[in-house]
Amino acid sequence: MKRFFAIIESPFTRAVLIGIIVLSFQTTLFNTLRPFSVVMQVMLLCSAASGVAAGSESGAIAGFMFGFMYDMVLTSPFGLSALVFGFAGYMAGGVNTFAYSPRWWFKMLSIGISSAAAVLIYPAASLVVGVDGLLQTRVIGVAFTVGLFNAAFALPAVFLMRWALVKSKKQMLWAE
């Protein structure tokens, strides 16, 4: 029984559950709300927020996991979102460490920048794996909008991911 609760309470389980719930809203609600004809990327938001909440490494793993789940519902090359979201989580965590004690606005900035960077990298990575035609000027607008939206919702996302990935303030799981 103890072991069961340990599994239930583990960051991995929490992250998977959050991932499935967020993914379900990504494919329904956020698929409908398309400001400026851009789909808001809440899975990417969670990936970047993981990096800010629990550090680069945890962010990379959580981002990879969220991207992997996202790949399950996409027709794009399998593993591409995992790679890019993992990068976003890692980058958000890395940018956040530039500040000694990052303020709220810096966290928003980290998530916004890393999300925009991930959106820009995605079509470039697609090109590498042989999917042509995604690298267009429209990508810049999409990256800007996604970055802005993710920055706006950064703080609740960080709070959620901290609950999922960090057991206490001093103890970070999945760290070295």
């Binding site: 990379a60 990879f64 090359p77 399998f78 593993g79 995992a82 790679l83 993992g86 794996v129 070295e176």
Partner: peptide, 25 residues
């Protein structure tokens, strides 16, 4: 970069490449 951090990045990258290869095959 620590060894663990490098290892983590390499593992994630290789996993992605493996997934992409599986998808492509």
């Amino acid at each position: 970069y620590s060894f663990t951090r490098r290892r983590l990045i390499v593992v994630l990258l290789l996993t992605s490449v493996l997934l992409l290869t599986l998808d492509g095959s």
